[in-house]
Design a protein around this nucleic acid. Structure first.
Lengths: 342, 342
DNA sequence: CTGAAAGCGCTTACAG
DNA sequence: CTGAAAGCGCTTACAG
């Protein structure tokens, strides 16, 4: 028969349990654990030992209720499946991961109703902010309703220019690709790309045309070949281009999948890549570009960095500073499908 | 100068605000909003209108503090980048999405320390349960420490057989692939696969061998060709197999990427696929299998369903029932790279 | 240096 | 049918 404080049974331990075990008040226990206020060193050690013994983990809900900050953010994506969302999401996770922030992941599946539903749930959980990840670069409608926390849009900008959007400079990316081909001594450059309905396709084509214009040149065929984003289109279009323009010495592709189709077609046609015709892709999707024959030079959109920047901007906004929208350039990743003329 | 209750300024509205605006007590407001207890119809309407007017969203933290349930779960993945985690994650999201559950996403990046850190954070946030998603099928060490909530392991089982693990039947998958080739009348079947260090590679090979044994046959070359998971290995191995065993009439590949390499090599060698040699892959990775020449027959592991089942099992466990580990079969997805002999 | 008290926003018996 | 009170687990002035 003892009156010693006992270790609680199978209940998650609370600060009260720790305080009891250490023989102090909850106020003192709180201060000791948080390193706040003046607590005698020996007392603090006693509290910390008790906490350790009980595997005490402070209840974040209670803390959040008090402080008004939960240390959580919502990540709203429209298609998890899409390969663009994932690196962005990883970048954002990186930006948060170091600190004390946890991330709620919500996939709206491209459905506005579902998105609305998720936003409501997240606000109910009192997230400190929201990141909205789009799956294509066309501007998207801003979140509806009165959102009482900061919001940062990534990849797909908000249609409202007052919102903070972190995006890729696709015009610059198209320019980068063509400037590389020009630097390789190529003059007859064709552009095979995806659906014209995509802003990304139009932007990259615009950048390509601009770079050529600066060099006093135009695209082979005098226009981009818009089609679809897949390999079959790459194969079909490559056949057409080579047949119509036998002088073509380089092809800039709007995606790595298109480029993959182009490579296959050129191989079938017996055209040497990169010697006779250099090929460059877009996306730097490892699974597609890293093991092709030859391995594919491509433009990397630095999506992970995009996500990380979005995370940082959200943090700043939560801390009360105002951010502005930003556009980031891509990066050339050289492999063996492009080569200077000998 | 009025004494009417006013709409609160720029503060997130609380139940007290709603009650004030509706002219009732917070207790009554609470009951009205939650449809609990006896509340006069007209009163409830008044409260609901007030809530609507203020865009009131109940504070989930406060609720969680009271009820002991937060309606959140933690999803612990070891590599977001990996294409296996994503469909599983989507399936889990689906399982939860319908209800009132929000998902914390944590990527441990394959680092045990980081995983430990995430677990602590999640427990601090009082998640109701955890799902642990592995990136390969080899058993993994269970979460360390005393975890006071249910845990379900997916794809990669826990090394502790008492834990609940939801996995893919890779032996069955290998069997499925070879049985399909046998059904197509093939008798000389080779198996080109990934690293022998992967349980997945060994399991699929085992299933393939078993199916052949049932038919009184053995693998061409009497053993699987283990190598790496990429296209180059597929190309190299295909050359070798065809050269050594000119009678081969089918190749079962341990991954779609390997199969892609095999297809390319056979094309270079002038072997007709599927006529002379049928090829089947594994994973059913759309980006790789859906647009190859010919399009690739493959085994789909139903990862999305795996994730959904894991979510359901976690729910059940949270509600107090005991679940058991389960293993799920794959599914044959027919395309044009396999064909019955004419 | 330590602790009693108030309060974050809500729900739930318990009286009226 | 309605409301005053207690309490979920914590932190923060404020006394001692």
């Amino acid at each position: 028969m003892t009156t010693e404080p006992e270790i609680p049974a199978n209940r998650t331990p609370t600060l009260t349990d720790v305080a009891k075990l250490a023989g102090v008040s909850v106020a003192t226990a709180s201060k000791a654990i948080n390193g706040r206020g003046e607590v005698r060193a020996t007392t603090r050690v006693r509290v910390l030992e008790a906490a350790e013994l009980l595997s005490f983990a402070p209840n974040a809900l209670a803390r959040g209720l008090l402080s008004g900050r939960t240390g959580t953010v919502g990540l709203l994506t429209s298609d998890l499946e899409g390969r663009f969302s994932i690196p962005i999401l990883m970048g954002a996770e990186d930006a948060f991961g170091a600190g004390q922030v946890s991330v709620f992941l919500c996939d709206a599946r491209g459905d506005a109703i579902r998105e609305q539903h998720h936003v409501r749930a997240l606000l109910s959980r009192r997230v400190d902010g929201l990141i909205v990840v789009g799956s294509r670069t066309d501007p998207r409608p801003p979140l509806v309703g009165n959102i009482p926390v900061p919001v940062v849009y990534v990849y797909a900008p908000s249609a409202n220019p007052n919102d903070v959007s972190i995006t890729v400079d696709n015009v610059g990316g198209g320019r980068l690709a063509v400037e590389h081909l020009l630097a390789c001594g190529r003059r007859s450059i064709a552009h095979i790309t995806g659906e014209v309905g995509f802003q990304a396709a139009r932007d990259r084509a615009e950048g390509a045309a601009a770079a050529l214009a600066d060099a006093g040149l135009t695209l082979v065929g005098d226009r981009p070949y818009f089609g679809s984003w897949d390999e079959s289109w790459g194969r079909a279009a490559a056949h057409m281009v080579v047949e119509r323009h036998s002088d073509v010495d380089a092809i800039f592709c709007g995606s790595d999948q298109i480029a993959r189709g182009v490579l296959d077609a050129l191989r079938d046609l017996g055209r040497d890549v990169p010697g006779a015709i250099s090929v460059i892709g877009f996306d730097n999707w490892e699974a597609i570009s890293a093991d092709s024959r030859p391995r594919l030079t491509s433009i990397d959109m630095n999506l992970k960095r995009l996500g990380a920047v979005a995370g940082q901007r959200l943090f700043e906004a939560i801390d009360g500073s105002v951010s502005r929208s930003e556009e980031f350039p891509g990066r050339l990743v050289m492999r063996e499908s492009t080569l200077p003329l000998g």
